[in-house]
Nucleic acid binder design. Structure first.
Lengths: 203, 203
DNA sequence: CGAGAATGCAAGTATCTACTTGCTTACTCC
DNA sequence: GGAGTAAGCAAGTAGATACTTGCATTCTCG
């Protein structure tokens, strides 16, 4: 018995390369090693098949998260950014096409925005905790900082293959992004007593 | 006499909505208000038409630039970021599809990376000048800072329509991005004498 | 082992798509 | 006004595509 899963995986690979219109049932059948008619017997139509691809993809994957009790922002953010880079890199091929197909297919729209708000909110929440504990500057714009962080991750994951020499080497990228990010928010480790210290500049 | 330009513009609009495969010659002809055969008489083939679209699009547009002599980083970067946001927003519909079609069409690959390196290098160069003049921290990672800035712009331009409430309101976005960016690099206005001052932190 | 279900195979259908062809009409310019 | 060119119209071609149908083969399980 042909695994429904096997067809879904093959369809995802073909969709990732060719997009909706380019993912012909013939290509998908070949990729899955099944007869074309089996696709229709299993899923009913190409649209339903590809909808199932987007619906099942990542449905149960745990989103990277940040700790409730910040201890070491540098280490914690590094782990978070690394996980996020991995995550978005994996999704990239699907994301590229869903972003372009939003107007034509609702499931593409849903897929393209999945989890983005959650990641943003998680970072904002974390940054607020840092501020409360004196581990980040009080006047840092945490909403925009979160946008900057997710934007950088997205840019690296989506565009590195297009302009590779612009991005830092993969093995150091997260580290360097976090380092710059911490400068932006005045991030630091917890100190014995909350030190009320705000940076002043002539700008 | 039908303007070749008119066909190109219509084709760009159709391509921006539907991608390469979805931009049928029928749709393009309707959009341009010409007979389908005219497309072939003018351009020879659909591929050549859409190649011409990507080749002509932005061929002569001036890239946003930064001044050779920095005076006021906040103002200069604000202008630069605003211009870049505009620029990438305009290109978004075409970018979305070209990014997904890179493997299949060389002109899509060329289009997707056009200007990106230049923008990156311009920012790096500018930041270096800031450092030389004591207007930015000596230890700021200017390469990554440039990546962060272009990544933020790209993220805003590409994904705002998908998760709108995550991004700051449009009229204030550039201002807030620049503000955070300046914090990251320790950016400030020129002072009377270069002050050698590096920030130390407990992190 | 046999029945039922799953899958393959081959042929086919209807529609779409890029593109061509031949003739007609409209436009431009000398 | 007439010649040449540009563009429209209609019909058509060949190939691609999602999908269906009928029969045959293979697989699974009681």
């Amino acid at each position: 018995m042909i695994s429904r899963e096997r067809i879904l995986e093959a369809a995802a690979r073909v969709y990732a390369k060719h997009g909706f219109r380019g993912a012909t049932t013939r290509l998908i059948a070949i990729e899955a090693g099944v007869n074309e008619v089996t696709l229709f017997r299993t899923f009913g139509s190409k649209g339903a098949l590809l909808e199932a691809v987007l619906g099942s993809n990542r449905a149960d994957v745990v989103q990277p998260h940040l700790p409730d009790e910040p201890q070491d922002p540098a280490a914690e953010l590094l782990e978070f950014v690394n996980a996020n880079l991995e995550h978005v890199r994996e999704l990239r091929p699907l994301l590229i096409h869903t972003m372009g197909e939003i107007d034509e297919r609702p499931e593409a729209a849903e897929f393209a925005c999945r989890g983005r708000r959650m990641v943003h909110d998680a970072i904002v929440s974390y940054l607020r905790k840092l501020q409360q504990r004196g581990m980040a500057d009080q006047d840092a714009d945490v909403e925009v900082a979160a946008v900057v962080l997710t934007g950088t991750v997205m840019s690296d994951a989506m565009a590195r293959s297009i302009v590779p020499d612009v991005y830092p080497p993969r093995e150091h990228a997260a580290e360097r992004y976090v380092s710059c990010f911490l400068r932006m928010i005045g991030g630091r480790k917890a100190v014995a007593a909350p030190v009320k210290k705000s940076r002043t500049r002539s700008a």
